[in-house]
Design a protein around this nucleic acid. Structure first.
Lengths: 317, 317
DNA sequence: GTGAAAGCGCTAACAG
DNA sequence: CTGTTAGCGCTTTCAC
């Protein structure tokens, strides 16, 4: 295999010292213009790229951003990653993606790998059920928590959702359409987001003078949402509100197969919600805004702040 | 900030040489069990992780896999990335994702960045229109081309689709349903995949004794598919066949808004195709199989082979 | 304007 | 069983 092209190999090739090459390439003033041009020309010919490893070892930062997501198939996560990746490219950074599948051990391993490569920052959707665990693995990693927030993890930044108003608006919408038996499927209390959304649902129902008794919670996933919806469809519920991205897709699949007989309000807004069944009413989350804010926090080093974005009910059909 | 934990700092802390620490941590036999345990204990307490930069500089390989995709929102790409990321984690590698948006300059920049970090391998969906360009940027990068293949780039591996039979089956299916005015939207000739799919369409139509005159090609994108479909919907076409993932989604959105009056066969099989409009007939691609094969090629170093996977027509509704 | 030395973290190759 | 040296590619510091 052809020897790696380094400043030294270029220097040898040109009969100068490797320092001259270094200076020429980094635009240092103290280099004869002739020399500089010759060096640059040769470097381009040889396809020289500076070793990121060497730079990292010198402590110059890696420009690597880590992204930990449960998965990347759900369109919310995909859109977030898409925007983040594009913005990172624009800012001269690279994105390493790890999928946690909401599994604690996987998350821990991923964080370790990111520490190995000295990632400058990490954006992560924390997995459920690790509240209170000392964030040993996070030591030395500037992290931003996305959507969910771990308790007792206040040294890290967070980008959260204010979806209470939208969820309550969803209930008001369903009540306005004559429903009184409104069901809810959401994440369980292991997740900060699960707790707050459930509480919003309960408040909304109380305001409407309705009982919040048709509730299903658990670890949020497509299958969980689908199973709970199938279960609810056999009962007395006439409307269904979802409190999670994956749950919403799973529940919707069940409702569509059921023939759309139940009034459905989803969570998140994958593009096909606009086309399906004449349009699905849903709690829309400003994904791109979240992602852009994440990039800002990263490049400006403000990774200890907490930002909150409002979700919005989108009526369709 | 707290000093970085290195084998040297641990060595100082324990009053031994850094080599003893190195050996203890890497399980070298020649270390007193006592010493080894003490070192490992201290390293764990301190949260030591070995510097990937140092390893890379020694030439031990980075375990970094690059993935270049047009975007990651389209479910085909998302599923591919999801499977690849999971498999990489399992194989102790990390995935760096770059989105090219099908733009040549972006692709070139991404490849340079991956060379900087000395990525062990790169899986890429080549951007259109760079045939024949010397692959200077690819020098020293073991790459696998996905779905599309660049001409004159035969030193790299490839994972391709054999979708001709499925496309011809789609035509037979539509003909069987009484259609004679069948339209096609696909990528233009700047893409190997565009050329082969169009040719499959033409062959299929010829076999059926029908003219292949309702054809639209161009740079494949959601908007392109949507615009072409809207255009075709105003004409005499009674059925529409798509030859691209993004195109298919765009065209489908137009057809759904049109009320589903045209017979539609999509390309790729995002999960919602099963729910929409009673189920969308489509050319299904074995994404997971492609991704697993990519991982195999990478870990086994067989990055110059070409593999082909068959697409399959899935009838729905 | 150019060069030589040192050091970032790690391990292979030699001493002991 | 343990320690010392050298070198991976790069820039900063100090000569010349």
């Amino acid at each position: 295999m052809p020897e790696r092209v380094t400043i030294k190999s270029i220097a040898r090739d040109l009969g100068v010292s490797h320092m001259t090459v270094s200076r020429a390439l980094s635009g240092h003033p103290n280099v004869l213009k002739e020399t500089r041009d010759a060096v640059r020309k040769r470097a381009a010919e040889l396809g020289y790229v500076k070793s990121a490893a060497a730079m990292a070892m010198r402590g110059d930062g890696t420009g690597i951003v880590g992204l930990l997501l449960p998965n990347i198939i759900n369109e919310f996560y995909a859109r977030f990653a898409n925007t983040l990746a594009t913005a990172c490219d624009g800012a001269g950074m690279q994105l390493i993606i790890h999928l946690t599948n909401d599994d604690p051990a996987t998350e821990e391993a991923a964080l370790d790998r990111l520490r190995e490569v000295q990632a400058s920052s990490v954006v992560m959707v924390p997995v459920p059920g690790r509240d209170g665990r000392p964030t040993a693995q996070v030591a030395g990693l500037r992290t931003v928590q996305l959507i969910r927030q771990r308790a007792f993890d206040d040294a890290t930044g967070a980008i959260l959702l204010d979806d209470g108003p939208a969820l309550r608006a969803a209930i008001a919408h369903l009540v306005g359409r004559g429903h009184s038996r409104i069901a809810y499927i959401g994440a369980d209390a292991a997740l900060s987001s699960g707790r707050s959304r459930l509480s919003a649902f309960e408040k909304g129902m109380a305001t409407a003078g309705l009982p919040a008794d048709l509730v299903r919670t658990g670890a949020p996933s497509f299958d969980m949402g689908r199973a709970c919806a199938q279960d609810l469809l056999t009962g007395e519920a006439t409307a269904l509100l979802c409190g999670g991205f994956e749950i919403s897709n799973g529940a919707l699949s069940a409702c569509l197969e059921d023939g759309g007989r139940i009034d459905f309000v989803g969570y998140g807004d994958p593009s096909f919600y606009a086309w399906v069944d004449g349009g699905v009413t849903t709690v829309q989350v400003p994904v791109e805004a979240l992602a852009h804010h994440a990039v800002q926090m990263i490049v400006e080093g403000r990774t200890t702040e907490t930002a909150t974005f409002a979700a919005e009910l989108v009526l369709r059909r």
